[in-house]
Amino acid sequence: MNKTVTNAIALAVLWVAAILTVAVLGTVILYVFINGIGQMSPSFIFTWPEGVAAEGGIWPTIVSTMYVTLLAMVIVTPIAILAAVYLAEYAVQGRLVGMIRFAADSLASVPSIVMGLFGLALFVEAAGIGFSMLSAALALSFLMLPIVMRTTEEAIRAVPKYIRWGSYGLGATKWQVVSRSVLPASMPRIVTGIILATGRAVGETAVVIYTMGQAINMPITPFDSGRPMTVHLYLLAMEGINLPAAYGTALLLMILILAFNLGARYFLRRNRKV
């Protein structure tokens, strides 16, 4: 077989694979869109579900999802950044740091249902917080922590060394170099990591189902329970209560996650252009 033929075949295979990927993604999105768009209306978004068939809107579940996600983000961000700064800048690079990294990567691959069970045992029961936004946020933060920590660490390591030199050269102490030059320079990528992890938390079901409760409720304090969108969707669909509302919820959920990912892209782009 000559080179041009091999080349053409390789190209065709790659092309088919690419088309297939896009097609699968497109089908899923289109399917949810077609089935869910009929539900879209301000009242679906902003009113409460009513009656046994959960007619009406899904407002409290949207609030619950946003509440728990933001709470988890607030918990995770400082811890993850401090840990990453320590790992990348201060820790003596060796076995111990390697082990911490390995632990973080392993934590990231723990099935989320296991994390949910763990959250149930630790926060809901042992710590006595009960089914609540706080328990769910803490359990979610276990899921987000390794993602944010590792992306932050990568971001810090990617800061060019001449930025550090410039800072040291002006008489900055190590901490000043880190806090005033390295962190600002890596901030776009850190924020991207936070947004992506948060996007994952929005779509998380297994963790919250064990920690937040299932009763529809409008959470006010972190100790209130609630029902997030994902769980609402699961219950509506699994028990065949209200399939159209389930698709409506799915569509909104997808839009929310898409918004997070687009936000991350936009943020990266804007900061790269300067």
């Binding site: 060019p160 001449y162 410039g166 050269g169």
Partner: peptide
């Protein structure tokens, strides 16, 4: 110190 590669902070 001034370096070969201009290194303004972002």
């Amino acid at each position: 110190m001034i370096f070969q590669q201009p290194n303004p902070f972002p």
